[in-house]
């Protein structure tokens, strides 16, 4: 089996140009989907029979939480690929993911807290999903802290890649242990309002928003990726070409 096509595909100049060409194909549909989902979620979807209009926070909270986990997974997979096949481009992908994922984790925490106040009557509830989200934020911060602390860029890439892989192995364990821990201490967290059951007109904007956020992630990743590739690349000829455009 020939791997030459694979290496050509993964070569930095090729990926750089590909990323540049693909960005609008993700950015515009993402923008359109997000706007449509905003309209659907804020206007078209009927209020929840228990939570009223308060349930509309779900259109921001759930997609953010989805992003936090999906981006971490992408980062860890890219890190594993980079370690196994020694691919510089994959390191660049992993490096691009962390700030995006961390920012959406913060959004998920803030919206979860804003949702918690009408639902539970407190700004912060140690419920398993919020707690897991908080720990995920710590994992992101650790990754970015480690990357920032190592001066040699190659070493920073490879060391933080090991951490990303270790982290993803731990994510399900952390989630399980937090759920288990929470099930022991159920008593105080009596929800004042029931969980919303989503009917189709409520669900469709949610799915659109999640898809829109996912496409948005790819678009932002592609922009960051180009920068990260440039940082890692020393070969002058194609960089000169790329910079002139």
């Amino acid at each position: 089996m020939s791997w030459t096509w694979f290496h050509r595909l993964a070569s930095p100049p090729h990926i750089y140009r590909l990323a540049q060409r693909l960005t609008p194909w993700f950015a515009w549909p993402a923008g359109a989907l997000i706007l449509a989902a905003l309209y659907g979620g804020l206007v078209l979807a009927p209020p929840d029979y228990q939570q009223g209009d308060g349930f509309r926070i779900i259109y921001m909270h759930a997609p953010s939480a989805w992003m936090s986990l999906m981006v971490y997974t992408t980062m860890a997979v890219a890190a594993a690929v980079a370690l196994i096949w020694r691919m510089k481009v994959a390191h660049a992908v992993a490096a691009s993911c962390a700030p995006i994922g961390a920012s959406f984790t913060i959004a998920a925490l803030v919206t979860g807290s804003l949702w918690g106040e009408p639902m539970w009557g407190t700004w912060w509830e140690w419920d398993p999903r919020l707690t897991s989200e908080l720990i995920l934020l710590f994992l992101y911060l650790g990754y970015m802290g480690l990357r920032g602390a190592i001066e040699d860029p190659q070493r920073a890439d490879r060391t933080s890649a090991v951490l990303a892989v270790v982290g993803i192995v731990n994510v399900p364990i952390i989630h399980y242990s937090v759920t288990w821990w929470n099930s022991l201490h159920q008593a105080p967290s009596v929800m004042r309002l029931g969980k919303p059951t989503l009917s189709t007109p409520m669900l469709v904007p949610l799915l659109m928003m999640m898809l829109g956020f996912t496409l948005f992630f790819v678009a932002v990743l592609l922009v960051r990726l180009r920068g990260e590739i440039l940082v890692r690349e020393r070969s002058a000829s194609w960089i000169r070409e790329v910079l002139s455009t």
């Binding site: 926070i57 959004a107 804003l114 949702w115 009408p118």
Partner: peptide, 13 residues
């Protein structure tokens, strides 16, 4: 609760 949620998340976007 609703508007700050939207503001924060869209600000992150």
């Amino acid at each position: 609760f609703v508007w700050p949620s939207y503001a924060v998340t869209l600000a992150v976007v």
